[in-house]
Nucleic acid binder design. Sequence first.
DNA 1: ATAATAGTTGACTATTTTGCTGGGTTAAGT
DNA 2: ACTTAACCCAGCAAAATAGTCAACTATTAT
Lengths: 163, 163
Amino acid sequence: MRLTTKGRYAVTAMLDLAFHSQTKPVTLVEIATRQTISLSYLEQLFARLRRAGMVKGVRGPGGGYTLCGSANDINIADIIMAVDERVDSTKCGGEANCQKHQACLTHDLWMGLSEQIRDYLKSITLGQLLEKHHVQGVAKRQEQDAARVIEVHRHPEANVSAL
Amino acid sequence: MRLTTKGRYAVTAMLDLAFHSQTKPVTLVEIATRQTISLSYLEQLFARLRRAGMVKGVRGPGGGYTLCGSANDINIADIIMAVDERVDSTKCGGEANCQKHQACLTHDLWMGLSEQIRDYLKSITLGQLLEKHHVQGVAKRQEQDAARVIEVHRHPEANVSAL
DNA sequence: ATAATAGTTGACTATTTTGCTGGGTTAAGT
DNA sequence: ACTTAACCCAGCAAAATAGTCAACTATTAT
């Protein structure tokens, strides 16, 4: 399991998609502008995500991408692995032909850790993240509201609508 | 929090160090040969680890590196962050000047996830990994012993010492 | 039919990271 | 003095990352 900016881009885009594709397909152009990711880079990422069966492309006017299935059925580990292009990740790929015992020991340790991380990310779904964020968002808005109440007392003209 | 091969090298080297520096300092040459990492790359990694206060260098003959403190006090997240050279990691670095609300929302989501991963890795120490591995190692050896018993019955000449 | 939309593909470039080489200098033990 | 090692650089080649460009194909609204 590797965590790079590439995976972050993919997760971010999928989050955006999950958030906006409730009613209609979302175009990559929208995601690109919202998330400030280059369109063509998104195209590459979504090509992999589509091949992994996580999103579905809808052609023609009004088209775009939608999630395949519910946001609650899509976990973070799968997204990252879909775009990450697994490359053996070890020099002695689990083979028994590795003479260097010590190397294999620590190598085993790392693999175990990596697996733990993967399991962990597998237990987190897009739906959970959105849900969690929703809660946080509400909390944050409440904070801001409270701050605005205080602020209004000093600068009554600053009472702008925040959303 | 990023997980790359660089971090893996660092964790691997630290595991090796924790395992072998019980009595005396361990030279980078030893680690390099055991873990098949280039000496100069190790030097770079250990320069950072030293600056982070995780290892102590001892010069001169009989010198090498030792852990600063117990293996139970060194967690994985700190090792990775020490070598990883934090580079802002976000375009709108938490600033309030980011107009793109939507971008910040999903960005927040990712940051939250990243933090969860970091907390998770912070909860795992070198000592725990070594301990865990020790248990696994014993179990694996027992498996192999059992397999050898079976094997001996078929090919008595294959009774080589495995360790 | 045809134009518009939008995905598909592949090649191509710039930048960054990675892993490594080799040259030193400095401190400490013999 | 001499050796052993940490320590410190400057640079470098290969790979990965991030992004670009352009031609192409499939779908659908009109």
